[in-house]
Amino acid sequence: MRAAFGKIKDNLKEGVRENSEHSLKRNVTLGKNAKFIWIAVMAVLLSVPAYAGDYVLNVMILMLFYMVLGQMWNLLGGYAGLVSLGQQSFIGIGGYALAIVSEKYGLPVLLAFAAAAGVSVLFALVISIPVFKMQGVYFTIGTWIVAECLALWFSTWAWAHYAQGYNITVTYRLSATHIYYVALAVGAGSLAVVYFILRSKLGLALMAMRDNASAAEVRGVEIYRTKLKCFLISACVTGIAGAAIYLQQAFIQPSNAFGISWTVSMVFIVVIGGLGTVEGPIIGAVIFVLIRQFLYNFPGFSMVILGVIAITIILLAPRGIMGLVQKWVSIDIFSVRRR
């Protein structure tokens, strides 16, 4: 695998050279100013509740939530080669963790978030035993079947109120601003997680796996571990996002908590934004939420449009909007490449 890393470093160098030779491209690198720009962006985002109304705030909240879901699906599908259609398992688990801890037992919300993260990771670990035996499309559908099983199980489970679900009353005491800050924290946290993963050894292993399958094949165990780590991290963050999402929704039922439509959004967001890029899910989430808001009164219609956009992008620009942008400007906002 070390050889593979060496090769990738060479490729990166070559890539850099290629960029500098390409006169058409404008290089946008944040460089030394990165820290200040990030602080400025954070400051703007933190101050949004001060001047924005509830509508804008709610749209921002949705964008943040969907960005997180997109990032986590992208970590699996875009980086680890694990195309999952079962990420809704963790949204449901996160949401139910919130409902049960805060509603059924009346415990603090913070504890609910801890439970959401913990149970998601635990569940991911358990189901990794069967689903990691499945390759390719079998994994894709296998993870989906797991989620369907959860939906069926929760709707027959007395402890979780069968199919009626829960009203999450703790939400009634929270304003949009509160939820916005929760969403912002989860959003920033998810970005930080992805950023640090990609800069870490795990990130290098992922790149090696993606770019040089044959060299990486030598170490089957290492691949297994790398993929498993991504699966667990993705489950953890998606679970936390699930709790946060249901903190806003205030009502949970198995059929929507474990519904495939969560993963539909994740796939659309990542495909439209750009598979395998950090910026992709951000762009994708913004577009996704905007289209859904514009066509709020026509929910079916917005999904048809999103589906058409997604298919068009797969056919014409397989690397998504981010790929199109990178054709003209080489953006390196998230310098995940180690210098």
């Binding site: 894709t140 539909v264 079916g300 999904m303 589906g307 058409v308 997604a310 298919i311 797969i314």
Partner: peptide, 20 residues
């Protein structure tokens, strides 16, 4: 992967069009 995702997109388009 791309072909799988295309059929996934189709699936969403068909079910939502039927809903409409």
């Amino acid at each position: 992967e791309p072909a799988l995702l295309v059929t996934f997109g189709l699936s969403i388009i068909i079910s939502n069009a039927l809903f409409l």
